Simulated scan of single mutants.
Amino acid sequence: MYAFLLTLHSLLRWLVVLSLSYAVFIGFRGWYTGRVFARRDNFIRHTTATLAHTQLTVGYLLYFNSPVVTYFRSQFSEARKQPDLLFFGLIHIALMTLAVVLITIGSSAAKRQVTDTARFRTLAIWMGIGFLILFAAIPWPFSPLAQRPLLRSF
């Protein structure tokens, strides 16, 4: 079960990164060009937030079943001195939760805006900040905090 969740989490990462990148792009494009907030834009807003929530749920399942996190919690004073354990035991989960909260706020606030420009601006700003935090908290192969492959498999 753990291996399946890890693979699913790795695959969903790409869907979240791609959909969030596109949502931020359409937000800025619509904001600066004065476009109409169409059904397609609303679909992208909603789909991006849903994918982020799904990824966070899978991430929580992994977090509470991970041997790395279990060791981190049981041996906190020693584990916090190791960057890899500190990243997965504390930093990753906190920043990802914050990123999804910001994405959710942005999605909800954009839906409630009166003008199309305000919808796009809200989408661009909130999801853009969420994207920056999310991108920083992903364990990329080039990350100084913790490295993982670009795609994990069973």
Rank of each mutant, 00 (worst) to 15 (best):
L8K: 01
F28C: 12
Q75V: 04
W14K: 12
Q55K: 00
Q113C: 14
F154E: 11
R148V: 09
I133V: 15
F87E: 01
G59Y: 02
L61D: 01
Y32F: 14
R119Y: 06
V68A: 14
H53L: 11
L15G: 15
W14M: 12
A3Q: 12
G30R: 00
W126G: 02
A124L: 09
A118E: 11
S10Q: 09
F25M: 08
I129P: 02
F64S: 07
R152N: 08
L5I: 08
H9P: 06
T57E: 02
N42I: 02
Q55P: 01
R13S: 10
R112V: 06
T70A: 12
A52H: 00
G59P: 05
Y22V: 10
S107C: 12
L151P: 04
T97Q: 09
A146Y: 04
R29W: 11
S153E: 10
L151K: 11
Y32M: 07
I125K: 04
M96T: 11
M96K: 10
R40M: 07
T54R: 00
W126L: 04
P83A: 13
R29C: 03
V101Y: 14
F64M: 06
L18E: 09
T7N: 11
V58T: 07
K111C: 05
A38E: 14
M1H: 07
L102W: 10
L61E: 02
I138A: 01
T47L: 14
R119P: 02
R148I: 07
R39I: 07
V114N: 06
T54Q: 01
Q113L: 09
F4K: 03
L18C: 12
P141E: 10
S74D: 15
L20A: 14
S66E: 03
V17C: 08
A136M: 08
P141K: 04
Q113E: 15
M1V: 11
Y71Q: 06
S107T: 14
T117S: 10
A23N: 12
T57D: 04
T54I: 13
V114F: 09
I44T: 10
Y32K: 11
R45M: 05
N65F: 05
S74K: 15
G89R: 06
W126K: 03
P67A: 09
Y22Q: 06
A38Y: 05
Y63D: 04
R45S: 09
L51C: 05
L134T: 02
G89M: 08
S108R: 15
G130Y: 02
A137D: 02
R35D: 11
H46G: 00
F87C: 04
I138G: 04
R73G: 00
F131I: 00
R152Y: 08
N42T: 09
F43W: 11
M96Q: 13
T115W: 08
A79H: 13
G130W: 00
L11Y: 11
L15Y: 09
V114C: 02
T48Y: 01
M96H: 15
L90H: 08
S107A: 15
T33R: 12
F154A: 08
L85A: 13
G59S: 09
F131L: 15
L51H: 05
V36F: 05
W140D: 05
Y63R: 06
V101L: 15
Y2D: 05
A124F: 06
F88L: 12
A124T: 06
M96W: 12
G130E: 03
A3R: 10
P149H: 05
G30H: 01
L85C: 07
I44H: 01
